[in-house]
Write a protein that binds this DNA or RNA. Structure first.
Length: 329
DNA sequence: TAGGCCATCTGGTCCT
DNA sequence: AGGACCAGATGGCCTA
């Protein structure tokens, strides 16, 4: 599942995440933010206390109900008041750091779910939803012990996601995003041409018929849409109808040695110049392993070609190889 | 301009 | 008592 090397060990260091926010333990970026926010807040606070003082004096009234501008000032709680202020200030700082830690964790989650993009970040809620779907889909894959249907896999990923996020996921797979519709129940439906055909038409096959399916296209004219859902006719792969229906039964035990190298990682690696916005799939494979298509969880076309437009990033391929290599050494 | 998303502040509650 | 955690309120930014 972790298709990227865990790059942020500092997030794992604390036994209880964010339990202690000592200044020394703050990451550099956080520390900067910390400083900035602190100074901002100090200024704001001073500003505030001045205003409060002014307002307090103006709100004081004499015996006739008129505003009292002069005279002895009402005694402030003094030391206790200052102490409360300081404690509130410290609590605010801690809370801010805690939220930053939470955001950092969310950011690292974004990096391990499909379709990571620096330029088009998933929102917090969408990240969590996608992560949940991803876990669910992978669990299903493991428990089924067979190669999943890519369409069903994507449908699972998109379950309950907003249309823009669905588009993003579809974009990752180089699929026609308009083919994935989310109905009012959050069910991801597939309509129109099969992505198999949209992306990789099989020579000689009916354009509207996915491989291995008998379907008749309407002669010549408009072709009726076929709607797919989990329980639809498109080789339903998952036994459970929906991730919303609870966690899939997982009676197996995840082995620590489990190798995820054969699983696709759908990532968007921004080019170094940061200009591109191209989504692609990255395939992680250990050196010496079998060829991409052979090792793939996904279907291979009758010609032995992979039916999807894969963008194998040689760089990440190599990096993964290095990691694996050093691991095995 | 409305709506979505986000960061921050704040007070309350729970836990150590 | 103090810190962590939580949820509500608020305001800023961005986009359709």
């Amino acid at each position: 599942m972790l298709t990227l090397p865990f790059e942020e060990p500092h997030l794992m260091r604390e036994p209880r995440f964010g339990a202690s926010y000592s200044r020394e333990s703050l990451p550099e970026s956080l520390e900067k933010e910390h400083d900035r926010s602190n100074s901002d807040m100090r200024e704001a606070e001073e500003d505030m206390s001045d205003r409060e003082e002014e307002e307090e004096r103006e709100s004081e009234q004499d015996d006739n109900g008129l505003p009292k501008k002069r005279g002895p000032r009402k005694k402030k709680p003094g030391k206790e008041f200052e102490r409360t202020k300081v404690r509130r200030h410290e609590a605010n700082t801690r809370e801010r750091c805690r939220m930053h830690g939470l955001n950092d964790a969310l950011e690292s989650l974004r990096k391990v779910v499909p379709c990571y993009s620096k330029t088009q970040k998933l929102s917090k809620i969408e990240t969590l939803r996608l992560a949940k779907n991803y876990i669910w889909a992978l669990s299903e894959t493991l428990s089924a012990g067979k190669r999943p249907d890519l369409l069903a896999f994507v449908q699972t990923l998109c379950k309950g996601l907003s249309q823009p996020t669905t588009n993003l996921v579809a974009g990752c797979l180089q699929l026609n995003a308009r083919n994935f519709l989310t109905d009012h129940n959050g069910e991801v439906m597939f309509s129109g041409r099969s992505p198999y055909d949209a992306v990789y038409p099989y020579p000689g096959s009916d354009v509207n018929t996915p491989p291995g399916h008998s379907g008749s296209s309407v002669d010549g004219g408009a072709k009726p849409f076929r709607h797919y859902s989990y329980s639809g006719a498109y080789e339903p792969y998952y036994e459970n109808p929906s991730p919303e229906g609870g966690s899939p039964p997982f009676d197996g035990q995840m082995s620590p040695q489990m190798n995820f190298n054969g699983i696709f990682s759908l990532k968007h690696d921004d080019p170094p110049d940061g200009k591109g916005n191209h989504y692609g799939m990255r395939y992680c494979s250990a050196p010496g392993r079998t060829a991409l298509a052979h090792n793939s969880m996904y279907r291979v076309s009758p010609e032995g070609r992979f039916p999807y437009d894969l963008h194998v990033r040689s760089q990440s391929f190599q990096a993964q190889g290095e990691v694996n290599g050093s691991f095995h050494n």
